Simulated scan of single mutants.
Amino acid sequence: MSKHTPGPWTAEPPSEQTPHIWVNAATNSGVAKIEVCDYDDGKGERLTDEDFANARLIAAAPDLLAALKSAAAAIGDWSRPTGANGMTSASLGHPLMVAQRAMYDVIAKAEDRS
Rank of each mutant, 00 (worst) to 15 (best):
L96R: 04
T27P: 01
N24D: 10
A11C: 05
M1E: 09
A61C: 08
W78F: 10
V23Q: 06
P95C: 04
A32Y: 11
G93K: 05
K3C: 02
I75A: 01
P19S: 10
A66C: 00
T10K: 11
G93N: 09
L65K: 09
S2V: 05
E111H: 00
Y39L: 05
L68K: 07
K69E: 08
L96Q: 09
A32K: 14
S29K: 14
P62G: 07
M97T: 05
H4A: 14
R80Q: 12
A99C: 04
V23I: 12
P62S: 06
V36G: 14
S29Q: 13
N54A: 15
D112R: 09
T10F: 02
E35W: 11
W22R: 12
A61E: 08
T18C: 10
G30R: 14
D40W: 09
E16Y: 05
M103D: 02
D41S: 12
I21L: 08
D40A: 13
T27L: 02
P13Q: 07
L64I: 12
S79C: 08
W78I: 10
A108P: 02
S2P: 09
G44N: 14
H20Y: 15
A59Q: 06
A61N: 07
N24W: 08
N24T: 14
N28I: 01
P6T: 07
W78H: 10
P6V: 04
A102E: 12
P81I: 08
I58M: 07
E111M: 01
I58F: 00
L47H: 09
A74T: 15
G7E: 03
I107V: 14
E16G: 06
M1Q: 10
R113M: 10
Y39T: 12
H94Q: 01
P8G: 01
V106H: 01
A108R: 11
A73G: 14
K69I: 00
P6Y: 02
Q17T: 13
T82F: 00
S114R: 12
L65T: 04
